[in-house]
Every structure is written in structure tokens, then in C-alpha cells.
Amino acid sequence: MEGMTAPPDDCLARNEWICGAYLSSRREILRDAVLQHLHLTVVSVLVALVVAVPLAVAARRLRWAAGPVLGLTTVLYTIPSLAMFSLLLPVYGLSATLVIAGLALYSLTLLVRNILAGLRAVPEETRQAARGMGYGPVRLLLAVELPLALPTAMAGLRIATVSAVSLATIGAIVGFGGLGNLIYSGMNTYFKAQVLTASVLCVVIAVAADLLLLFVQRLLTPWTRRGGRPGRAGPRRAPAPPKPAESAEPTGPTEPAQRTEPVA
């Protein structure tokens, strides 16, 4: 590789972990990898979100649907990422779509569970009050239930996004792993600076995405803050859903995160 042309007393030549010369000489490679990483993550989470909301609402409305939906999400979430991507190989081939589909399936399971938990946590009295005020089922869902489920749903979205950023690296097995590609090739060439830089960038993206979503959550749910400004026609005096404590329900690997509010 380019290491051959580097001056002998260069941090690249010495294969150091931290290397400024790596950052400046591979700027394009790093930028492309970051962009691919963001693309994989953002698209997969958005696809999952679009599918998860109706699925969770359906599971809430149709009692019989909740069991199968939760069971399926547990099964999906239990499948290790490498196996998940492999199982999608006959469908999508070696493509970015394969990685996006795999990541979307994981995000979907997290989102469906959290949105459903949020919807279930809406107090019955609140629902009855809305009905008493003449709210139809659609308005009840859009103006009361979904806004009240938002904090729990957003917690799920944050976990899903952070997990997607981390799991996208496994996409390197099919050549579409964003920063994972750099980690993979860095491993094969024993390139320390590349592996460390790509790993750190992964964590930075995950933390930045988490903080961004936390900010969005604060904007969307002003009523959960103490002394929040009077909101629009929204359920602003709603009982702020306390940290979803559904410890009775045995659920999959994401349980603790749902129980304890993630701290950035």
C-alpha cells in the first residue's frame, strides 16, 4: 500500500495507533466510509420507523396480534447480526440493501416493542377522558395516545439508532459496512491507525446520533420537562410517563435499556 512511499520516520511507517498523517492522507477514504455508515444507519432506521408505527398500533388495537408480533420481534432480535446478514444474502446479494434490510429488521423489533409499551402505558382514564370529550378513535390515537407514547418511543429510537451504528460495521462481510470496511481491511493489513480511527469515529457517530435524538425528544415532548412552556393543543398536563417499568414482562436483550433511561 502507500506505506511504501512514506518517509521512514513517519507514524504511518511506524504503524502507530494514533497518527495525524493517516487522518490527512486518507481524508477521502474516511469521508466516504463515514458517509456510507450514515447512509446505512439513517435509511435503515427510517424504514424501520415507517413500518414500526402501524405495526405497533395494530398490535395495540388487535389484541390477538400483540402476542405474535412480540414473539416475532424476540426471534428476530435473538438472531446474531452476522447470521442475519447471511440469511438475507439470497434475497439481496452483495449489496448495501442487504445491510440496510438487516439493520432495519433489528431497529424494527426495538421500535415496535417500545412504541407498543408506550401505547400500553397510556392511562385508561386519559383515554376515557378523551372519549368523553368526543374524540374519535383516529383523533384519540393521533392527538392523545401517540404523543403520550412518544417518550418511550423516542427511547426506543435512540437505542435502535445507536445499535444500528454499531452493527453496521458487520456489513463489512459483504463489503458495505461503512467504517466497518476500514476496520476489516485494517485488520487484514495490520493497520493500527486505520482500525483505531474508524472505531473511534463509529463511537463518535453513535454518541452524536444519541444526543441529536435526545434533543429532538426534548423538542417534541415539552410537557415532560418541569415548567415546560404551555404547549399547543397537546396533552401537556399528562402524567409524564415515568421510566417505563414493565419489569413483569419478560422481553429480549433490550430490556435493561428500556427500564433505565439511557444517559448520554
Binding site: V162, G186, M187
Partner: peptide
């Protein structure tokens, strides 16, 4: 709690390599 969050944000593959 923070350990659990860190465990999610750090890719397993990165740590392995």
C-alpha cells in the same frame, strides 16, 4: 446504566480487532 449504553455504542467488531 452508563456501562450498558457504552456496550451498545461500541461495535463488538471494533473491540475484537
Amino acid at each position: 446504566v452508563n456501562l450498558a449504553n457504552a456496550g451498545r455504542a461500541v461495535p463488538t467488531f471494533a473491540v475484537l480487532v
